[in-house]
Every structure is written in structure tokens, then in C-alpha cells.
Write a protein that binds this DNA or RNA. Structure first.
Lengths: 220, 220, 220, 220
DNA sequence: AATGAATGAGGATTCATTCAT
DNA sequence: AATGAATGAATCCTCATTCAT
């Protein structure tokens, strides 16, 4: 079960040659490091150990190469964030919101950690690729909204979550989780993180906020 | 009282020519739209209605032009943290954390709203500009952390905030605020936002989390 | 047996493309005519019948192109001093100084005549290319001086040359030979020269200024 | 009695402003150091401490500036080499060739020493300025030939010089003197020269190659 | 399929020159 | 006379892309 999307891409596409694999890997590394516009195809060719022409035999243009990398990320990285784990929740695997959140954070953290370069590329190029923006907004965001509404309603019905528009609950939860992951893996990866403690604190925060009150429920 | 940094730049630097203003404005627009590496100087010149050589009379290199735009954002970004807000907190101008947060969110929202293109540029170029990274990490982030630590300790002492490492409180608060601002101004600006309600909900979330409990305090 | 250095370059480097040959020839012609700084790469490309980019595929920079032309001149310039002529002198192939000088003049005249454009380039660019200056002074000049010192000492020992610091004998001989070659091939090539007579006169001039003869007047 | 040609230029042209002087001096320095094509007008302006536009108020083009420097050198530096000192000789100030040569060498050495930058410029630019070449060949060279013929004939008549075409005697003499000056002031100025000894040796070299003596071996 | 030499449009930057002040 | 901001052509060089091998 490969977590790395590039490996998945290669595994799933049997027709991919060795050279194509090398090109893809080199491109991911370079794009993540210097950005799409800041990376030259000759650089990629050199890093991949192939001739310049070989790249264009497999990818019609440089942008084609980028899209062949980024597009799968969109569907593989973001969609599952919501969809795959959602089923477990709906199947009652997690009675409490806390448990759902914990599973989600750990799962996504592993996933992000295995795909950091891809993530960087996605974030960097989104603003300049209207195609991707559209795809992200219309397909992914829509799915998220529909599915999370179900989750939210589920936990709201059994009294675990406040009555609040689902989009807002999703935003706040996602924001808090992503804020943690961003600091953990992108901004300060060199910091000495105590992952378990930090994850529990994040869950606590999402659930019970920051206020200290005498009558507050059990806090960590 | 202009909130827009480019306007401030022009107002404060009397020696800035009309041409320089045009160049700066064109550069901001282009960089925000297509990224630094994706924008050519000839493009900027054309958009500014200026000869290409004129750009290089005022900014030695293209990167110089970028830095003259981005650097001020970094310092202006943290100005209120350092100068105004800490004193207000210590002077009891904000007795309750909620009030402090509300002021902060509104203040930063205004700032962000007035400088969206600059922000996009800053975020896009940070990964590729080690200069900026260093400046941000060593100077800006450190100052923010020191000041927010003081604020946090202040509210922890008078019992309004949980006992928790300040960096974590700062992260969670910042994450939640930035998550709101991101959705509001960058990702879905066209959505019909009820700003006041959303801000109050964000404050509530930071303070009291998402859990519904019988003994929970008054919720919005 | 090509005397022309460019031809040698091409003959010796089998990997040199047709295009590279054209570029080299065009560059030599242009540099000799208008100087290095006065020649544009687009000009060279046009004259060579090649795309401008092709130049930079073979020579990383314009200066690289210059050096690839000039550097060989420096080494070929001294080849006969080092390799052939010294041995001939020591082996008594040239019993008399006159014979050695005659051989040297003819040899260098042929060489110069076959490489006039290269020579012009070398002389023109020396003052502005510290690399070349250093190379010339430290490597070439030193080797020439060492070898010529040996030759001088040889002829001084057998009584054919005056007792005088070798550097001075070298200077005066070189000066006289180079003075002839300069007039003959660079300054007044269109003049109707009687080569044999001029060479003999030059030898005579050198000799009967340097020759030690009993009847000579007071010498310094 | 200024020996420096630039000073002379300024002294003789009363209409030259302070700024023009500064420009001329800066241009001479820069051209000598980096060549005409390698020097930018803005560089000259900065070194002269004037505005860029000021240069073009006084010299219509960059080449105009060069010619205003180089042209006088041609007439002042080379013509006097022959003409001025010639009169002394013809006036019998120097009975012996040796004395004439000594006076000539010393005079020209001083002159060259005072005008090294100008000299470098002249030599560097001659190959690329057909105007100057023509001027040099037709005017200067012609005068040289006429005048030196007189000198040569004079000393040939009174038996001090060999019977030989005057151009050849001039070439060999000039070559030897210039060879010394070149080494002394241009190539190896940092070397510890014993000027007097070197000059005498040069004279001896010239003389006892050219002198007609009963005991001399067969001459051409 | 793979190569890599060749291309030429386009990139950032420089520069001689102009002109309004 | 002097300035220096402005110009835009030209410079060196890079790069995505093509194509003969």
C-alpha cells in the first residue's frame, strides 16, 4: 500500500517506462524546490538522466508535465481527505467526534508527510493554473461540502456538535487540522515535535476551545 | 489613513516619480496574477506604460523590484502586534480575550483586504526566496512570538486562558483567524459572507470549541 | 601539415561539428576586424550562418569563445622554442648564431603569416583579459626565458655572443625580429618586400651589434 | 612645459570648461583601462562627477569623445618624435649618432612615461579606427620617411652609418628603441630597471650593428 | 523509443543618446 | 550650461521545443 502518490501513479500506469518514472521524479523534486516557472526542462532532463528530447516525447509541453503531476494530486490527496475516511465514520466506526478527528489527523499527517513535494507544488501552482482552480472549486469543494454535511449532521444529531452551518464547522475543523500540519511538516519540520501530545491538544482545541472556566468539562 | 501599502510607499517616499508609481502598481498586479518568475519585465513595462529601461533605472534587478514590494508587507504585517495591540491589552483596553480577538481580527481583515495582491505575492514567493524566508523567520516570527507570548501570559494569569504552552495557543488562534481570512478574502471572496456573524463565530470557536454540552456557556 | 591554428583545432578535435567550425571561423574573423567587445554574438551567428543559440550550446559564454580561440595561440607560439629549436642548438644543428636566427625568423614568420587574424586578436585583447596576461606572463614568458637563456649561454660560451645579461640579449633579438615581422605582416603587408634580403639584413643587424669582436669599441 | 598631452590640450583650448576637463581625464583613464568598447559613457560620467547628459553636450557621440582624445596624440606623440628632435640633429647639436640616439631615447622615454594611458588607447584603437590608420600611414609615416631620410643621409655622408636603405635603418633603430620602451614602461614597469645602463646598451646594440667599420665582416 | 544538436523567440539587463526642466 | 530621467534598440544568454539520426 504505497502512500506516495508518485509511486501509485507509476504502479497504476503499467505503460510507464523507466525513463518516464525518472522524469516524473525529477520533475516533482525540481518543481517543489524552485517552482514551475523557475525550473527548466533541461534541468529536469539532467536530473532524470535522460535527453532533453525524451521529456517531450512523453509530455507534449512543459505544462503537460506539470499537469500530469498535479492533477492526480488533486483527486488523490484532497478527495480522500474527505471521502475515504468518511465511510468509516458513517459506518459507526467512531462513536465520538474526538476519535474521528484523531483518525483523520493521523491518516492525513502520514499522507502529507509522504507527499510533501507534491503538496508544495500544488499550493504554489494553484494561483496560476485556472484549470486546477476550477477543478478544485467545482469538484473537490462541492464533494467536500456534501459529504461533510452528512458527517456534521450525524454528530449534530447525536448531540456531540453545536448547531451551526456545516460549512462553518468544516472550515474551523479543517483550518485547525491544516494549521497543525502546516506548522508540523512545512514551516517548522526541524522543530522537536511531540506528535501525540500535539494531536491531542488540537483535538481538544477543536472540541472545547481555549477558555479556562471552572465549570469547563474535563480538559487535558 | 491609507491601509494600502503601495499607497503608503508612494506617500511616504516623496522622491518616487510618477513612473515609479506606475511601475510598482503594474508589478504588483502582474506578480500577483502570474507569479514572479512567470512575469517578464517587458510585460510590466508595457502594463505600466513605461520603457523597459526605465524599470532598471529605478530597480537594479527584477528581484530588487520584487523585494521593494514584498519587504514592506512583512514589516507592516506585524506592526499592530508590536506597537498598538500589546499596550492596549496591558492597559486593560481589552479586558476580555474575546474583545482582543475581535479587534485583532477586524484590524487584520482590513489590512488583508486592502493588500490582497501583495499578500498573494508574499505567499507565492516565500518558498523560493531564501532572503525573505530568513527575514520572516528570524525577525518577524520572533517578534510576533515574543509579543503574543506576553499577551497570552497576561490572559492566562487572570484566568481567561487555559494553561498551555504559549506557542500552541498562538498557533491555534492564528490558525483559526487566518483560516477565516483565507476563506473570506482569498478562496471564496465571491461568497455572500455575513462578516459580523462569521467573526463572532470564529471568536466563539477559539474560545469554546465545537462541542455541544449541557453545561456549555452561552453560544451565538 | 597545417600551420593555421584554427585548422589544427578542427583537425585535432574530431568531435567538432561543422557548426562549431563555422562559429570559430566567423568569430576569428569578426574579433580580428572589430575587436572582442565590438563584436556581438548575433553578428557572429549571422556570419557563421547559425542560430545565435547554437553559439551558446558550444561555448558557455562569449568570453569562453574568445578563450577557446586565443589560448591555443599562446601555447603554439612557443612550441618551437621549447620543443625543437633548443635541441637543434645543443646538437650543433645550428653551429652559428646566424643560422639559428635565420631558422627562427623563417619559422616564426610562417607561423605569424598563417595566423595573422589570431595574432591581432591576441594582441588586442591581452590588455583587457587578466586571465591571458597571467597565463602569458607566468607560463609562456617564463618558459621562453628559460629556454632562450640556455641558448644564449650556449652561444656565449663558445664566444659567438657578447657577455651581457641574457634577458637583454633576448629582448634585443626578439625586438628586432618582432619589429621586422610587425612591419612585414601587420603594418605594411602591401609593401613589396624582398623577404630574403630583409631577413639577412635583420640577422646582420642583430649580429654585429651583439657579436664580440676584438676590434669592437668600448662596450658597456 | 607640460609633457602630458591632456594638460596641453586643456592649456591650449581656453574654451574648455572644468567639466570638459574632468570628462577628458575620466575618459582617458577608462579607455586605457578597459578599452573604448568596454567603457560605458555612464561610467565616464560617474568617474568625472558629471551628469550623463553633460558628456553629450560637449561631444556629440561617444566616438567623438574618443577621437578628441586620440587625434591629438597622433600629431603630438608621433610627429615630434621625428620632427622636433630632428632639427637639433640637423643643427649639428649632435655630432655623433650615439648622442643623437641618446637624446632621442631619453626625450621619448619621458614623453611616453607622461602619457602611458594615451599610448595604450592609441595602440588599442588603431586596428578598429580606419580614420586613424589612414591618418597614421599617410601623414605621419610619410613625414617620418622624409625626415629620417635626411637624418640618415646626413650620418651616412659623414661615414657614421652603413650604406643601407634609410627605411631599413629607421625600422631597426625605431624597433630597438621602441622595444626597450615597451618593456620598460608597458610590459614590465614593476621590474627594477637601471635606466642609464639599459639605454647605453640599447645604443651600443644599435650602433655596432649599424656601424661601418673596416674590420666588419661581409655585409649585405 | 531515445537522443542531443539546433533553433529562434523571448528573457533580463545595458547603453548611447535625447530632452524637458 | 547642466542635469538626469527616460528611452528603446541592442546585448548576452536561456529555454521550450523540434527533428534528423
Amino acid at each position: 500500500m504505497p502512500k506516495n502518490i508518485i509511486e501509485e501513479l507509476i504502479d497504476q500506469n503499467d505503460h510507464l517506462t523507466e525513463k518516464q518514472r525518472l522524469i516524473l521524479e525529477a520533475a516533482v523534486e525540481s518543481f517543489a524546490e524552485k517552482g514551475y516557472a523557475g525550473t527548466s526542462t533541461s534541468e529536469i532532463a539532467k536530473k532524470a538522466g535522460v535527453a532533453e528530447g525524451t521529456i517531450f516525447r512523453h509530455y507534449k509541453t512543459k505544462k503537460d508535465l506539470l499537469l500530469s503531476i498535479v492533477a492526480p494530486v488533486m483527486t488523490k490527496l484532497i478527495a480522500p481527505f474527505i471521502i475515504k475516511d468518511l465511510n468509516k465514520v458513517l459506518n459507526q466506526d467512531f462513536e465520538r467526534v474526538e476519535d474521528f478527528l484523531r483518525a483523520m489527523i493521523i491518516n492525513r499527517a502520514e499522507f502529507l508527510n509522504a507527499n510533501i513535494p507534491l503538496f508544495k507544488i500544488l499550493i504554489q501552482e494553484l494561483p496560476f493554473q485556472p484549470d486546477l482552480q476550477k477543478q478544485l472549486k467545482e469538484q473537490i469543494a462541492l464533494k467536500i461540502y456534501e459529504k461533510t454535511k452528512e458527517i456534521t449532521l450525524h454528530y449534530q444529531k447525536n448531540g456531540q456538535l453545536l448547531e451551526m452551518p456545516p460549512y462553518r464547522i468544516v472550515r474551523m475543523t479543517a483550518t485547525s487540522i491544516f494549521g497543525f500540519l502546516l506548522g508540523r511538516y512545512i514551516l517548522f519540520p526541524e522543530f522537536d515535535w511531540n506528535d501525540e501530545e500535539e494531536i491531542e491538544a488540537t483535538i481538544q482545541f477543536i472540541m472545547y476551545g481555549l477558555a479556562r472556566k471552572g465549570e469547563a468539562p474535563e480538559q487535558a
